[in-house]
Design a protein around this nucleic acid. Structure first.
Lengths: 216, 216
DNA sequence: CAGCGACGGAACGGTTGCGTCGCGACGTAC
DNA sequence: GTACGTCGCGACGCAACCGTTCCGTCGCTG
């Protein structure tokens, strides 16, 4: 948490930007290759071609280092267009997500950090904030648009997020089966169907047996 | 890979079963608490109240240890009943899955190992085999039943698995938001809707705009 | 040109884990 | 009762990192 360039206090000499960014790159690489648990400052410095002291001058610890860097990388907000239909919006979202998760760095780092988050509250919180800011807001906007269009009625945003994010995340980050872009429309249509079915099912109905037939 | 009791070769003395199972428990605990990357034989032995040598007498390495134990724990097949409807079947599956993932050991270990699997081919392969045997076969049976009932037409089993497993896994293992059992019917209904929508969307249609309306 | 501060490099003592070994103490089969 | 194999315990040498400290160099600022 100390990356911005110093405004020379008295003499001179500033934390060099090229070194800072070399360290940032090295951290992302190491995270992808060995994961957070095995990440060592020594290896980061080695990969960055930099002395350990140079790292410690900028960040106080491994946790600090990772939180700041991951937070800044993932913190970029993305806004999606209103395509005029729920399915269309979903397709755009999936296109963006699948492109992001195709990047080997991301697809290695994200599951690793999410697993680590279950263990380390700090990481969990940072990830929550970052992801909330992006995908939750994005999901809510997407649903809000669909509701105003009349494609959906009100729906629990958490449940909706599960339905929207879950399948693609499972496919790309967990099962690691590549997704042909041509499949995206079908995925989007399927999830749209899930959202609509969720709207039409009030909570805790005991008569689940015949729900399937009334589907429209 | 050497857990079965020896049939005394000459003298006597057998690897004691109580110690073997103490080690197994300890491994599961350590996996949950620190994860695979940080798991050390020393800590396992310490927790099991056992000497390091006792561990090495049974398994040759950390990888061997974890593969054998996780494989045997997760290898238990579960078969689900035919409830007579797709939604009903899904509810049963989700009930079982959510109970399994509510167990703190499982909900910590599974995401950790899946993340590790992206890095370690051996773990990946073991997990694939184990999970294939369970959930993929399970998913295919579930879809097969729905098809014979006329609830679905043919569907890509991989895509179907994404739709079925993704949302619940995301919710419980990644987002770690608890799932009220009362929500399960709605989730099942939503996923059934997704599967049906997926059946009605042939691959790579360019006219996604009006798909949403034809939903029945 | 003088001084400050970041730089790489190298070392520090301390911690943790590795995989192996030897010891004496059981307990069991022959 | 003798021989064997596992047991806990403790130690071994080796390796990797930790976080810190000192050095001499270099480049910028004033």
């Amino acid at each position: 948490m100390a990356t911005e360039k110093r405004r020379a206090p008295a003499g001179a000499a500033v934390l060099r930007d090229d070194i800072t960014s070399a360290i940032r790159d090295a951290v992302m690489h190491e995270l992808a290759v060995v994961g957070y648990a095995r990440l060592s400052i020594e290896a980061v410095a080695r990969r960055a071609g930099v002395s350990k002291a140079a790292v410690y001058r900028r960040w106080s610890s491994k946790l600090d280092l990772v939180l700041e860097i991951v937070g800044s990388v993932a913190g970029q907000r993305l806004l999606l267009p209103d395509t005029g239909s729920l399915t269309g919006d979903l397709e755009v979202v999936y296109l963006i997500m699948s492109r992001a998760l195709r990047h080997p760095l991301a697809s290695q780092i994200i599951p690793d950090l999410l697993a680590e988050a279950a263990r380390n509250p700090q990481i969990g919180q940072t990830l929550q904030e970052v992801l909330r800011n992006n995908q939750q807001a994005l999901g809510e906007r997407l649903i809000g648009l669909a509701v105003t269009r009349g494609e959906l009625t009100a729906i629990d945003p958490v449940a909706a997020t599960d339905l929207i994010v879950g399948p693609l995340y499972w496919r790309l980050a967990i099962a690691r089966v590549p997704l042909d872009p041509a499949e995206i429309p079908r995925l989007a249509a399927a999830v749209a169907g899930a959202l609509q079915a969720a709207c039409q099912t009030p909570l805790s109905s005991q008569d689940e047996g015949q729900l399937v037939a009334q589907q429209q």
